[in-house]
Every structure is written in structure tokens, then in C-alpha cells.
């Protein structure tokens, strides 16, 4: 294992613990918006997609990268917007 992988594994495991800590006590009401919000976060793969679409010029890899950008953006934009729509319903009575 290279040092990069070792650090990556530490980060991965610690982040999972952070996730568990943060989410364990979420009330059931928020389960759906939490899920769709978390879903949007998994679109972070867009960062990789952008890098792949850029490196090299006009190759198949670029096209796949472009496709990955599109699918990740569907996930990101759709996920955040739909979550906001839902949460708006939950909170509108408070104002």
C-alpha cells in the first residue's frame, strides 16, 4: 500500500464514522429529504468526471467523461432541488 492509499483509507473510515454520528439521530420525518440530499452529495464524482473529460483531446475517454458529467449533474442538480422542494413543505408553516 502506498502512502496515498493509506491516508485515503484513514480518511474513508473516519468519514464513515462522522456520517454515522451525524445521521443516527435524524427524526423519521426527515428520512426522505435526508436520503435525496445525501444522494445529491454522491454526485461529487462530477469532480472526477470533469478531470477525465478534460485530459486528452477528443478521445473516447473524453466522451465518457462528458457523459459522466451529464449523469452526475442530473444527480446533483435534481437531488438538491427536489430536496429543497420537500424541505420547503416541512418548514413553510414556521414562517
Amino acid at each position: 500500500m502506498g502512502p496515498e492509499l493509506q491516508v485515503g483509507l484513514y480518511v474513508f473510515v473516519l468519514a464513515i464514522f462522522v456520517g454515522f454520528e451525524l445521521i443516527t439521530k435524524v427524526p423519521p420525518t426527515l428520512h426522505t429529504p435526508l436520503m435525496s440530499g445525501a444522494n445529491a452529495v454522491s454526485g461529487i464524482t462530477i469532480v472526477g468526471a470533469l478531470a477525465c473529460a478534460k485530459a486528452g483531446e477528443g478521445t473516447i475517454a473524453n466522451m465518457l467523461g462528458g457523459l459522466a458529467i451529464a449523469t452526475a449533474m442530473v444527480n446533483v442538480v435534481g437531488g438538491y432541488l427536489v430536496t429543497d422542494r420537500m424541505l420547503h413543505m416541512f418548514t413553510k408553516k414556521d414562517r
Binding site: V11, A15, I16, V18, I23, S42, I44
Partner: peptide
């Protein structure tokens, strides 16, 4: 990506 992905995975 590792952090964000792990958070979603845990959730």
C-alpha cells in the same frame, strides 16, 4: 470524493 462518498455511504 472519499469524504463525500463515505458520508453518503454511512447515511
Amino acid at each position: 470524493l472519499i469524504i463525500a462518498g463515505a458520508l453518503v455511504g454511512a447515511a
